[in-house]
């Protein structure tokens, strides 16, 4: 399936404050793309622009050479789906009703994803009674089941523990063989391990874009996260991991991320 998402010189501002500028990229082929950057660098804003929730002040965003702003909302909905991190509403419905909302109850689609995300025991539970992590998984299953060619995820793993997060990354990597998945994340380790391309944002513009190997140079790490992140090469052919070091006022504390890997 042909997928071509092109952004050209996007500029977005609110009330004189420029949130995103000079955003230009082309993404073709189904793949898993990670958007990383410090807080406030514009990750969520970029995702919202890609989803069509916000309109760029300048520049163009095209999907398969069709300008997204001029597409009718329903057509855009067929191409792009978004999982946003702030779900304020927790309607009192059962999980099964949520998942079968857009599909017939016998359809395979939602059953496949609810199986993968371990939702079968939760099907008859009411949404507000689930834990944060369980709610996150339900909404992720619902979004995945839509099977749109482009899937946007804005920090979907915020409420999940490490094991679940790793499982979901693997699921997304499998899904990314069929569609373009763009995901923002703060977990540099897992992002670097699973994504095939990374976009590093800084102060609202693309600082670097490329494979994790190209992005995670010490220079980039220093400039974006200060001296907190170190890149360590691991000779045992496991992925290199990022060591986070935190200096307290009086003591030195070391905090290793993801020792499991």
């Amino acid at each position: 399936m042909m997928i071509n998402l092109t952004a050209h010189n996007l500029l977005f501002q609110i009330h004189q404050k420029i949130l995103l500028s000079n955003i230009t990229f082309t993404l073709t082929d189904p793949q898993l793309v990670g958007i990383i950057g410090a807080n406030g660098s514009g990750k969520s804003t970029l995702i919202k622009l890609l989803a069509g929730l916000l309109k760029p002040n300048e520049g163009s965003l095209c999907y398969n050479h069709k300008n997204l702003s001029s597409l009718p909302a329903l057509e855009r909905a067929k191409m792009i789906s978004l999982l946003a991190p702030q779900w304020e509403l927790k309607p009192h419905i059962r999980v099964q009703e949520i998942l079968t909302h857009h599909h017939p109850i016998d359809s395979d689609r939602w059953q496949h994803y609810s199986d993968k995300l371990n939702l079968i025991p939760l099907l008859q539970r009411v949404f507000p009674s689930l834990s944060q992590g369980e709610q996150a998984r339900v909404l992720l299953a619902r979004t995945l089941a839509l099977q749109t060619p482009i899937l946007l995820l804005d920090e979907p793993f915020a409420n999940l523990d490490l094991e679940q997060e790793e499982k979901l990354w693997q699921l997304l990597k499998l899904e990314a063989k069929k569609r373009l998945i763009i995901i923002t994340s703060h977990n540099l380790q897992l992002c670097g391990h699973h994504a095939s391309q990374l976009i590093l944002l800084r102060d609202g513009s693309i600082y670097a874009m490329g494979t994790p190997k190209d992005i995670f140079t010490q220079k980039h790490l220093n400039e974006t996260w200060g001296s907190l992140a170190y890149r360590l090469e691991n000779k045992r052919k496991r992925p290199s991991y990022i060591w986070l070091e935190y200096e307290a006022i009086n003591d030195h504390h070391s905090y290793a991320s993801n020792k499991v890997f």
Binding site: L53, R76, L82, W87
Partner: peptide, 17 residues
């Protein structure tokens, strides 16, 4: 109306103004 159940952002991305 069904899509609004989960909030404005979800409804908007599913094609509702």
């Amino acid at each position: 109306l069904d899509l609004l159940l989960f909030g404005d952002i979800w409804a908007e991305t599913r094609g509702i103004h």
